[in-house]
């Protein structure tokens, strides 16, 4: 489990980037749900934490692909591949991420530090 931030530091409607490798974006929706996905868009190199959060969807800040935060599914192109999702746990008022052990769908030209 990776600590992301105190719950109080992530108000509803906000997002935060955690500098893991690859980085992870954590979202707090207006409805009070918390979701985590890989921060890098699967289309090109843009940070989804900088995107527009609406309901359970984030719109990429660069070319407006939309991803469902619950499943990572692409709801609007140009992205073709889903974004990897991670589990979020809140303990003692702190947000933690349980990183997925599936491979990420990083865009062309973007590599992780270890690969």
């Amino acid at each position: 489990m990776i600590p992301a931030c105190p719950l109080a530091a992530l108000p509803r409607g906000e997002a935060l980037r955690v500098e893991t490798d690859p980085p992870i974006a954590v979202f707090h929706t207006e409805d009070g749900e918390l979701y985590a996905v890989d921060d890098t868009c699967t289309h090109q190199d843009a940070s989804l934490a900088d995107g527009w959060l609406e309901g359970c969807e984030v719109e990429c800040p660069l070319h407006a692909s939309r991803f469902d935060l619950r499943t990572g599914r692409v709801d609007a192109p140009p992205a073709k591949l889903p974004v990897r999702t991670h589990q979020v746990v809140v303990q003692d008022e702190t947000v933690y991420i349980v990183p997925s052990d599936l491979p990420p769908n990083l865009p062309p030209g973007v590599r992780t530090g270890s690969a």
Partner: peptide, 10 residues
């Protein structure tokens, strides 16, 4: 400034 651009754009 991608993050603030996302907001201002609207």
């Amino acid at each position: 400034q991608p993050r603030s651009f996302t907001r201002w754009r609207r």
